[in-house]
Write a protein that binds this DNA or RNA. Sequence first.
DNA 1: TCATTGGTTGGGCATTTGCTCACACTCTGG
DNA 2: CCAGAGTGTGAGCAAATGCCCAACCAATGA
Lengths: 317, 317
Amino acid sequence: MTTMTDPEITPQDEAARAGWLYYVGGLTQDQVAAELGVSRQRAQRLVAKAMADGLVHVRLEHKISACLDLEVDLTRRFGLKLARVVPALPAGLETSHATAPAAAQVLERYLAQPEPLIIAFGTGRSLSAMASEVIRTPHAPHRIVSLISNIAPDGSASFYDVIMRMADKLQLPHYPMLVPVITDTIAERALFNALRPVQAVMELAANADVTFVGIGQMNGEAPLYKDGFITRSQLEDLQRAGAVGEIVGGIFDAEGRYIDTETTRLIGSFRIPAGREKPVIAIAAGLSKIGAMRAALKGQLVNGLVTDESTARALLA
Amino acid sequence: MTTMTDPEITPQDEAARAGWLYYVGGLTQDQVAAELGVSRQRAQRLVAKAMADGLVHVRLEHKISACLDLEVDLTRRFGLKLARVVPALPAGLETSHATAPAAAQVLERYLAQPEPLIIAFGTGRSLSAMASEVIRTPHAPHRIVSLISNIAPDGSASFYDVIMRMADKLQLPHYPMLVPVITDTIAERALFNALRPVQAVMELAANADVTFVGIGQMNGEAPLYKDGFITRSQLEDLQRAGAVGEIVGGIFDAEGRYIDTETTRLIGSFRIPAGREKPVIAIAAGLSKIGAMRAALKGQLVNGLVTDESTARALLA
DNA sequence: TCATTGGTTGGGCATTTGCTCACACTCTGG
DNA sequence: CCAGAGTGTGAGCAAATGCCCAACCAATGA
């Protein structure tokens, strides 16, 4: 109807409006087009853009009883404070896609709290997907801190810049980890650790009220290796030392005990202590991660878990 | 794949799973059908059921700048603590449908708070729609209290049993208002008011940390009249006394001052005091309500508003 | 036992939607 | 001023979806 060419309307505005009419209003794309005074194709493109830009968030209210049962079982078996199990998507699909909305919901519960919290994040696909799903919360009083940087030894940044996207979305003060994931020498690492801002970040991380991390496997698919943070020989060195998994660069064996090798001493992230009192929530799913996840749970490196149905079953088997 | 006839799976479970695969997983209905081992038609029915049962919740992240501007304007003009404006749906559609998701989001922010709150609710279409949209929050420590009952003089209950649905959904202790909306005589009303449980509910209502209400107009479309709570002659009596609107049965004039007539003295609800410090959030939209809404804002009967774009514009005009 | 009824299932069809392709328009550099 | 690259637009079509209808099944009552 109103087809005045306001100077203020951004493309996102249009997309959001189209998405609103379509998803919330339940109009057909023809009707949306008529309402906005554009062609049907354009309406369809706007709706698609709204979805692609992550403006549209879909959540399910109902907990499927099978998943609920698994949550209870996981909580008991591993002494967790929190377990969320989502239905599995058919094999082949990106698993992080499935856990992300549930993880976002967990995070939002913390974000909604009125007292200021320190919220710590790792990196990785799962966390990145969670960041996309979080709905923006206005003026929350929290601070967010990164437990690991995303800078590879060659200086390039991996895609999963969780903390920046989170900070951008939530408008919160944020403290990135300045130490590179891995340095060349122990001396260099020590140099970084001596920096004031680094110490401040470590201090914040140690006092985080809640921590969200992914869990990385240490087989050939290891994210640390795949994303170019460690070399193949370093990976093999770690595997020989019994590494089965990794949480923000802290590498542990099948019992969930951190291991210590030449390579681990070069890794510059905050090491989450085992058996923490404050919530440490892992977001992880996928059969290839089972070993790493079971070890992390056994070693009490995490006390909360967001995963999917098939992974939960495998963990309990 | 797994077509075992588990005894535990309810129809809702199936619907939820289908909805999950479809909406979150982004599968086509054919794929959902294959995954669940049912026919495509059944899959389509399950997905539709998931939607119809309100299992699927869609929210938009982006605030359309036009709406944001209106929020700011409303806040300034009427001294509000909170204003939320959603894009308008084309004329003719149920307006409460549009405001509901936004209102639910506001409510969820309170529900997520860890300290126990007293949350008070009115009734009506808008609140009822909000209740449908709220996503279940596990073991929150709050109590919810009703400000007005939904029992008509003939003993029948109106559909909008907000507090019961809310309590059911959120598993919270709830305190329904026992006094009928309107009694036959002042003596009868006094009798009700003397009851211990009624006094307890009034006490809770007075101490509510946050209050959600609808706003009713007092023209021929008045909800109080339409839903059979007051007779035509009572409506006319009120109109003669200058009534333009109503909040949980508290009837006010164009300046937002509560009015006092034979009829109002029979109404048995909690009267929200003007200029309350704690948030009192109205959820209302629609051109027919403009007069009532403007009056309520003028009289500071509410200090928060969730409405839609066209209503907001009309209010500011 | 059998007919009736209420509800569920799958087939078929009209509508809606996603996508590709060719074209137009604009912006930039020669 | 023109050529070329890149972005955006509308037409058309195949796939996906929603919906109606006839058939089927289970339960009830005569």
